[in-house]
């Protein structure tokens, strides 16, 4: 898995750097000064980075498997900030090198290729602002997704038009082919994720079998495959779920499976937290659902030889952990397990009855941790501190594989605590929710 990871990182670096190296090779126009050429190189680099984003987010399983797709999206977000800095630097350097060119910003004198470049620049700024500040701007997730895709296409298409219009370094045959290939791979990635994948989902629909109300404003949606055998997933993975619309409508939402990987029916346990999830209680048995799945590297099945597992969950982060515990129970697993699960109160403690039952079926130590304990509560309370984790980490902690799922600050804090307590970083795995 590590080798595969390094291979895909090398592929990524090659993809983003190749067009830059192509600037060096073959017939090139005469140098027009350091700032001018620096600006030009950053312009090419930023457009290439934007184009590669289409490949990054196309959910190719072989490329995302070594990392987990959650981290790919996180990387996409970080790389986009870098690309935006280059996009901003491109005109700043250019106008510094040739201030006369500022006149071309006056509309009567603006050539079409400069207008395309300005359009691409503005689309990129809008992409970043709406992505980094979606919640503060009050943009609904579905509207953001649709706008994000449209703005990304506009940014790249106008950016490519700008390059073709300016005509530097693309008018030589093989360089034109290189840029053509980059453009074609963007279109192919877009077609794969927006046309091929929805078509496959339409051919393999699911039907809602049951809706179960859980403790803590959570609901479990149980789905059965309709006219097909479903698919196998690894316990702890997740799916993009579409309800109440076509898979072409870009109204899919990522949720972890909470069901056992050994059973045919699939379930998702969803907390009512936002526009889409607040509608989950309206789901009715018999309704159609579509799945793009399975994805994710957060799974016991990636570490089958572990001598035991140590799970830490916060809030609805229990969903993928339930999938792993239910799977281990179905398999009759006897390895030692720990679950440290933090939630607000015992009354709202999602899955508490089933977790207590699982301690009978599995070699499981279940440690509920309450943020708002009721009077008389004798268990653990407060945050998942290093001291609390230390109390339950077994002596043979180096042989345990740890899984953490919950809010990002909790994940980061628990990762630090486990690492400081002697657990190898290669044995600590986490799953991010709620990236945008």
């Amino acid at each position: 898995m590590y080798l595969q990871g390094f291979f895909w990182i090398a592929v990524y670096l090659t993809l983003v750097l190749t067009p830059l190296f192509a600037l060096f090779v073959g017939p090139t126009p005469a140098g027009e000064g350091f700032l001018w050429d620096f600006s030009l190189a950053l312009g090419f680099a930023s457009l290439t980075m934007m184009a590669v984003m289409f490949l990054l987010t196309a959910r190719f399983r072989s490329a995302t498997a070594p990392f987990g797709i959650d981290i790919i999206y996180y990387f996409h977000r970080q790389s986009s900030v870098v690309a935006l800095l280059f996009v901003i630097a491109h005109p700043v350097l250019l106008f510094t090198a040739a201030p006369d060119m500022l006149l071309m910003l006056w509309p009567p004198y603006t050539p079409w290729h400069l207008a395309a470049g300005i359009g691409s620049f503005l689309a990129m700024i809008a992409l970043m602002v709406t992505s980094l500040r979606r919640k503060q701007l009050g943009i609904e997730y579905d509207n953001w997704r649709l706008g994000h895709v449209l703005l990304a296409v506009i940014a790249v298409v106008l950016g490519a038009a700008h390059i073709v219009g300016v005509g530097h370094y693309v008018d030589v045959g093989w360089k034109g082919v290189l840029w053509g290939l980059i453009g074609a791979s963007c279109i192919a990635a877009f077609a794969y994720v927006r046309l091929y994948s929805p078509a496959r989902q339409l051919r393999h629909p699911y039907r809602v079998k049951e809706l179960i109300e859980e403790r803590g404003d959570a609901w479990t949606v149980v789905l059965s495959p309709e006219g097909h055998d479903g698919f196998k997933f690894e316990a702890g993975q997740f799916a993009w779920l579409t309800l109440w619309s076509s898979p072409y409508a870009l109204k899919e939402h990522p949720f972890s499976f909470s069901s056992s990987a050994e059973r045919k029916d699939l379930s998702f346990t969803i907390k009512t937290l936002g526009d889409f999830t607040n509608r989950i209680p309206e789901v009715r048995p018999g309704e159609l659902a579509y799945l793009d799945a399975p994805y994710g590297a957060f799974s016991i099945d990636r570490h089958p030889k572990a001598k035991g597992y140590f799970f830490v969950a916060g809030g609805i982060g229990i969903a993928p952990v339930m999938s792993m515990l239910r799977t281990l129970a179905d398999r009759g697993d006897t390895r030692p397990l720990h679950l440290i699960f933090g939630y607000s109160s015992w009354d709202r403690f999602t899955f508490r009855e089933e977790l207590e039952e699982l301690t009978q079926k599995l070699n499981l130590v279940f440690v509920p941790v309450l943020g708002e304990p009721h009077e008389g509560w004798k268990g653990e309370t407060g945050m998942l501190t290093p001291e609390l984790l230390e109390r339950y980490l077994p002596e043979e902690r180096t042989e345990r594989v740890c899984f953490i799922c919950g809010p990002v600050p909790m994940i980061e804090s628990v990762e630090r605590s486990l690492s400081a307590a002697g657990v190898s970083l290669s044995h600590i795995h986490s799953e991010l929710f709620d990236l945008v």
């Binding site: 190189a41 680099a45 790389s79 870098v82 986490s430």
Partner: peptide
């Protein structure tokens, strides 16, 4: 940890691109 690695990789890639761009501008105008 994965977050830190992903962040480092994204910014490392950016630095590589920046270095390659500076190198191009210097060589092309030498």
């Amino acid at each position: 940890m994965r977050l830190k690695i992903a962040t480092l990789l994204a910014w490392f890639t950016g630095l590589l691109i920046l270095a390659a761009s500076v190198f191009f501008a210097v060589v092309h105008n030498a």
